[in-house]
């Protein structure tokens, strides 16, 4: 008999060794209870409330099944909010891919040793630094008396900004109350999430492919568009999951930098807060969930999850 079988620890550990299922159960119980019961439970409770409705006169929630709240989503004002948010998320995603690609490409293909570490930290630090501080920095930049207007004035380019702001929809009284301003801040805050997945997928492209392409007579441009870009696409899609989803759900950026027109997140916030219309707020939250569901399904088909 081994000596440790005499004390309770030894016996317990022997029991667990003989019954791996019991050990597995003990390991899994706390996290599953926390995430499965508290988190998923709250999520389903919220979903359930989207099938209730609110009485227009008393403002009291009626606890019976109805699709009335979902019909309310389709009235023009609410539909506008949804379309506006989805379009913004799409533009932010495209913009982020364009800005992030050269960084990822350089880091994957040309940076070595110390430079590689520097690039990695150069992306990680802004990615992890405080969200609100980043938004605040842009409030400083876009302010009328701020640095952007100052630079433009020094370069005698104020007319360019004025011309841009006089454009319909994307313009406005100043950058900090226009869609252009909102777009810039979204782009800034979520773009770092795009770099690492693209870099990871680029690093997996074997250099023999590029040599083969050159051997077959392709110039650098043709190699890029016909070999590298298609192979990097899963990385771009993986990154776009973050930029798209994070833009869809954000309610703070458009509240601080932007016109007073609402985005989905702001609508949710307004309906659950002062209005007390939890059913409509819940129905609004279903919109990004459904959109992201489709998005993830499409991304999976494109093999984007292997690039994560």
């Amino acid at each position: 008999m081994p000596p440790n079988a005499l004390n309770w620890r030894g016996r317990l550990s022997d029991t667990l060794w003989r019954r791996p299922r019991l050990l597995l159960f003990l390991l899994l119980a706390p996290p599953v209870l926390w995430l499965g019961v508290i988190y998923l439970g709250s999520l389903f409770a919220l979903l359930a409330q989207s099938f209730f409705s609110i009485d227009e006169f008393s403002g009291v929630i009626k606890y019976e099944f109805t699709l009335k709240t979902y019909r309310e989503l389709l009235i023009p004002a609410n539909l506008d909010i949804i379309i506006r948010t989805v379009l913004m998320a799409a533009f932010v995603t495209i913009g982020a891919a364009i800005v992030a690609f050269p960084i990822a490409y350089f880091a994957a293909r040309y940076a070595r040793g110390k430079w590689k570490a520097l690039f990695y930290l150069g992306v990680m630090l802004p990615l992890w630094s405080s969200y609100l501080v980043k938004v605040y920095a842009w409030k400083l930049i876009l302010a009328k008396e701020g640095i952007l207007n100052w630079i433009l004035a020094k370069l005698h380019l104020t007319w360019l900004l004025d011309a841009w702001l006089s454009l319909p929809i994307i313009g406005g009284n100043s950058l900090s109350v226009s869609y252009t301003g909102t777009f810039l801040v979204f782009l800034y805050v979520w773009m770092p999430f795009m770099v690492l997945p693209i870099q990871a997928s680029l690093e997996r492209v074997p250099s023999s492919f590029i040599e083969a392409s050159a051997d077959l007579g392709a110039n650098a441009r043709q190699t890029f568009f016909n070999v590298i870009l298609p192979l990097a696409l899963p990385g771009v899609i993986a990154g776009s999951i973050f930029t798209f989803s994070l833009t869809l759900g954000d309610y703070i950026i458009p509240q601080i930098i932007g016109s007073s027109r609402l985005f989905i997140g702001q609508a949710v916030y307004a309906h659950q807060g002062t209005a007390g219309n939890i059913p409509l707020a819940a129905a609004f939250t279903v919109v990004p969930v459904v959109i992201m569901g489709f998005y993830l399904w499409a991304a999976k088909k494109k093999g984007a999850f292997d690039a994560l």
Binding site: L43, L46, S245, L246, G265, Q272, I278, A281, T285
Partner: peptide, 12 residues
């Protein structure tokens, strides 16, 4: 999931 969904779900 967007943070707002986690937030409002927990709040309700």
């Amino acid at each position: 999931l967007p943070g707002i969904i986690t937030g409002i779900a927990l709040r309700s």
